[in-house]
Amino acid sequence: MFRMPPEWAPHERTWMAWPGPNPTFDDADGLARAREAWAAVARAVRRFEPVTMVTGPGQSAGARALLGPDIELVERELDDAWMRDIGPTFVTDGERLAAVDWTFNGWGAQSWARWGHDAKIGAYVSDLAGARTHTSELVNEGGAIHVDGEGTVLLTETVQLGAERNPGWTREQVEAEIHARLGTTKAIWLPRGLSGDYGEFGTRGHVDIVAAFARPGVVVAHTQPDPAHPDHELCRGIVAQLRAETDAKGRPLEVVEVQAPTVLEADGGWADYSYINHYLCNGAVVLCSFDDPRDAEAAAVFQRLFPDRTVVQVDARTIFAGGGGIHCITQQQPLAGRS
């Protein structure tokens, strides 16, 4: 049976996609800043494991200048740069590598989005990785799921059950498809994502800025301590829900709260800056930073959770301005046979 290993399992490599001209980066300065931000993440990850960057045709030379010599580049037509969402979700049966190619429709067919090329990236990356491709009719993205590796998956109602993605699908049908593709047996449904994630370039509720497994039975959860922010009450409810949940093994969940940065507004709306949107690679936690007083507090929390890993912080404000964070632009390929 194929299953999705947890992110902390050993990786073969990390996949990313290079920003190109599109509505997300709507001017030359914005695109240049995005490329510098993506490159900073890629270089941080490359310290610990191989990285392959998919670039648009003719963009490899410019990417190489920012990425350095030791990141692999491959060219393919792209619409956007969020590999977590457009790339495949890798699964293994303990020996063989496969990949789930979800249906992608531009985060719910958003008015600004283009996805004709990005909808093909999952199968392309799967093929490059030498994986067998499992095609799914479910409209879903990698940022909308998080697994513990022991049967539990986190989801949000506004993504998988949203009419913009899966009209006509019932909760039971979504769960059956998720479980069949990921090898999970229990879904924990959160009601929605953070308020800022419903803005112009938001995903309409991805779970990976709200909550994530740190190990089986332990979840890190975003909290907003300031009552002036609409996420204050939302996060209180989500934390309470998670503390009342059990995982697929019947264990009560331990919830580790991670406070949001102090800034309340960004890019013309409510900030959804979140330390939860981190990336685990071999031997490291690549953690968002925001030039904020709480950066150090978050780093200390993750160092306690992952004492054997190096915590590396990378400024993620430019990435969040485009609609995501560090986890959103990275996608792990597990080391087959080592899940």
Results as ranks from 00 to 15, higher is better:
residue 278 H to E: 12
residue 36 E to A: 09
residue 266 A to H: 11
residue 33 R to V: 00
residue 7 E to L: 09
residue 141 E to I: 00
residue 135 T to A: 14
residue 133 T to P: 08
residue 78 L to Q: 11
residue 101 D to C: 07
residue 101 D to K: 02
residue 324 G to I: 00
residue 88 P to C: 03
residue 175 E to V: 09
residue 178 I to A: 05
residue 297 E to L: 10
residue 215 R to S: 03
residue 14 T to G: 04
residue 177 E to V: 05
residue 205 G to C: 10
residue 244 A to E: 15
residue 41 V to H: 01
residue 121 I to M: 10
residue 233 E to G: 09
residue 282 N to W: 06
residue 79 D to T: 10
residue 234 L to M: 14
residue 72 E to K: 10
residue 9 A to Y: 01
residue 217 G to Q: 02
residue 305 L to N: 02
residue 87 G to P: 12
residue 78 L to K: 09
residue 285 V to C: 06
residue 318 T to A: 15
residue 81 A to S: 14
residue 292 D to R: 08
residue 169 W to E: 07
residue 257 E to A: 14
residue 135 T to Q: 12
residue 88 P to R: 00
residue 203 T to Q: 13
residue 69 P to M: 14
residue 200 E to S: 12
residue 183 G to N: 14
residue 267 D to I: 06
residue 79 D to I: 11
residue 28 A to W: 02
residue 64 R to N: 07
residue 102 W to A: 00
residue 119 A to K: 09
residue 283 G to C: 05
residue 166 N to C: 07
residue 261 P to L: 14
residue 242 L to A: 10
residue 259 Q to E: 15
residue 27 D to R: 09
residue 62 G to V: 06
residue 88 P to Y: 00
residue 144 A to E: 04
residue 39 A to L: 10
residue 96 R to K: 14
residue 298 A to P: 00
residue 75 E to Q: 10
residue 169 W to Q: 13
residue 210 V to K: 00
residue 198 Y to S: 14
residue 184 T to I: 10
residue 296 A to W: 07
residue 33 R to E: 05
residue 285 V to E: 05
residue 192 R to Y: 02
residue 14 T to E: 12
residue 234 L to R: 06
residue 104 F to H: 01
residue 93 D to K: 04
residue 125 V to C: 15
residue 3 R to V: 08
residue 10 P to E: 09
residue 327 H to I: 07
residue 320 F to I: 07
residue 5 P to S: 13
residue 92 T to C: 14
residue 12 E to H: 13
residue 7 E to D: 15
residue 126 S to M: 02
residue 54 V to D: 01
residue 270 W to L: 13
residue 67 L to V: 01
residue 70 D to R: 11
residue 177 E to A: 11
residue 218 V to F: 11
residue 229 H to A: 07
residue 23 P to D: 04
residue 214 A to H: 06
residue 126 S to F: 04
residue 17 A to W: 00
residue 61 A to T: 03
residue 337 G to N: 15
residue 65 A to W: 11
residue 44 A to I: 03
residue 241 Q to L: 15
residue 20 G to I: 04
residue 281 C to S: 11
residue 250 G to C: 13
residue 120 K to V: 01
residue 58 G to Y: 12
residue 35 R to N: 00
residue 14 T to H: 01
residue 241 Q to I: 10
residue 167 P to S: 10
residue 131 A to Y: 09
residue 231 D to W: 02
residue 84 R to W: 02
residue 127 D to S: 09
residue 37 A to F: 00
residue 75 E to F: 05
residue 162 G to E: 03
residue 245 E to Q: 15
residue 324 G to R: 00
residue 76 R to A: 08
residue 19 P to S: 07
residue 264 L to G: 08
residue 156 T to P: 11
residue 32 A to G: 04
residue 155 L to S: 02
residue 207 V to T: 04
residue 168 G to H: 14
residue 222 H to N: 12
residue 16 M to Q: 05
residue 305 L to F: 05
residue 40 A to L: 11
residue 9 A to K: 06
residue 328 C to T: 03
residue 215 R to L: 06
